[in-house]
Simulated assay, not measured.
Amino acid sequence: MRKRFYGRVVLYGHVVPVRLYGLVVLVLLLTAGCVSTNAQPVTPAPTSRTPAPAKVARPWRPGDPQLGAQVLWYAYPGETDASVRTNALRLVNHMVGKHMNALSVTFPFVTAGPTASRVTASAETPSVRHLAMLLDTAAAAGLRITVRPLLDEKSLVAQDPLAWRGSLAPTDRTAWFRSYEAFLRPYLTLAARHHANTFVLGVELTSLEDDQHWRTLIAAARRLFRGELSYDANWDDYVSRHVPVPVEHLGVDAYFPLPGLGDDATVAQIAAGWERWLDRKSTGKLPRIVLSEVGIIAEKGAYRHPAVWKGGGQPDFTVQKRWFEAACQVARDRDMAGLYWWNLDFHADPATPSDSLTSFVGRPAESALTSCFRTWPR
């Protein structure tokens, strides 16, 4: 491979003037025996490349349900191109094997505190370059792609144990949204250039949803990304009111508490509890709603507080499995636009069950999600 610049050529590590370049190449080719009156094209020597991913049996098409998982990516120090490509290939192959047709990548950004008026990337935010590698691998497999930045809550909780991303109160909202737009800009460009179908402009930002700055932010996003713009609301926010963020589709992070159910509850009972929650908003089909997060810790008592993942309780993998089965049943019965399980760690080997009870990998819940997607009508 050569680089051409300012009248010179770098050839095998040596700088050669352009006027001599043709002669040098001819001499080299003749010396190698590559030029003759019957010359054939020279076949390049094989190079090592990342293997191609497995292919989705039936790629997503408009009107199909989005059947996938949230890939949670907190960057590690020292991540390399090679490690990112390896992890991306391993993860995408696993998802294809579980009958998924969609991938949503969730990654963090930060703010200094609940009243701060600025957001930024952090050391744990994956680089645009590395995210592009995952998106390209997913696209090569035929997976539908969503890009989903998520405000990390560690700095909020450090100042107020009750604070969370849904209770932000920036001192200067104009500055906050201006900062947020600047942060999103390279990721919107990434989404536009690397096959993304959807960009989630916000996740669980309940206290800011009524702000008029969303319209300016959406207009700016439209100039960079022509795909679908979405917003993911928290479960209680969704059922209690109209979510006013003016995007095309709405996702719901679905952690509906069912305090009346014991650990021996049936799938039908859990599904009925979900239906009662959804009926608070509307009955019947919900073809424009995506369940953007569905997950639960594999512990006894988890039905009472599925959004609490502190751990330390008594393990119960059946609790997790039945929750997944019920969520699948409800999403299918309501004709929802899709469902994303929470979550797959970008760095974890999905062939090895995690020690954490928050994971579904290698557990009965994973067989439930596989069956859900394999049998979902399309």
Rank of each mutant, 00 (worst) to 15 (best):
V18M: 14
V27S: 12
A32T: 07
C34I: 09
S36T: 14
T47Q: 15
Q70Y: 03
E79V: 14
R85E: 15
T86P: 00
T86V: 06
V96C: 13
M100P: 03
N101H: 00
L103D: 01
S104N: 02
F107V: 02
P114R: 08
A121F: 11
S122R: 10
T125R: 11
P126M: 11
P126Q: 05
H130Q: 13
A138Y: 05
L143W: 01
K154P: 00
L156F: 08
V157D: 00
S167L: 12
A175L: 09
F177Q: 07
A192F: 01
R193C: 06
A196W: 07
N197S: 13
T198S: 12
E204R: 10
I218G: 13
R222L: 10
R223N: 13
F225W: 07
A233S: 15
D237L: 00
D237G: 02
V243N: 12
P244A: 07
P244W: 05
V245W: 00
V245R: 06
E248N: 02
H249D: 02
L261K: 09
A265T: 14
I270Y: 05
A271I: 12
L286C: 09
L286G: 09
P287Q: 12
Y303T: 00
H305W: 02
Q320K: 08
Q320P: 07
R322C: 01
A326W: 00
C328T: 08
M336V: 13
W342D: 01
D355I: 07
S359E: 02
R363A: 02
